[in-house]
């Protein structure tokens, strides 16, 4: 695949994702206007999907910083401490 074709395929995919929902067949639509609920579900989905990643990422970042601090504080002992 050439670069131009990949770009074209990728942008077609991106357009498909953001097409208005009216363009999609909907299995169980009731016909009433539920844009507000739809948006709320989208927000809830985003919150639930991204929050755990942020929390775990934050914890890992904190632990790594902590490990660096401890290591630099013990710098002088480093060679003796590591058995390798």
């Amino acid at each position: 695949m050439t670069a131009a074709r990949s770009v074209r395929a990728a942008s077609a995919g991106a357009v498909a994702v953001v097409l208005p929902r009216a363009a999609w067949a909907c299995a169980v639509c009731t016909g009433q206007d539920d844009a507000a609920v739809s948006l709320a579900i989208l927000k809830g989905t985003a919150l639930l999907s991204l929050l755990p990643l942020a929390l775990i990422g934050g914890l890992v970042w904190f632990l790594r910083r902590r490990a660096r601090e401890i290591e630099s504080a013990r710098g002088a002992f480093r060679e003796q401490e590591s058995p390798r």
Binding site: A16, V17, V18, L19, R21, W24, A25, C26, A27, V28, C29, S38, I41, L42, T45
Partner: peptide
């Protein structure tokens, strides 16, 4: 997918 979620979300 068939519980009536936004089809765009289904795509993602």
């Amino acid at each position: 997918f068939i519980a009536g979620i936004d089809p765009r979300m289904a795509n993602v």
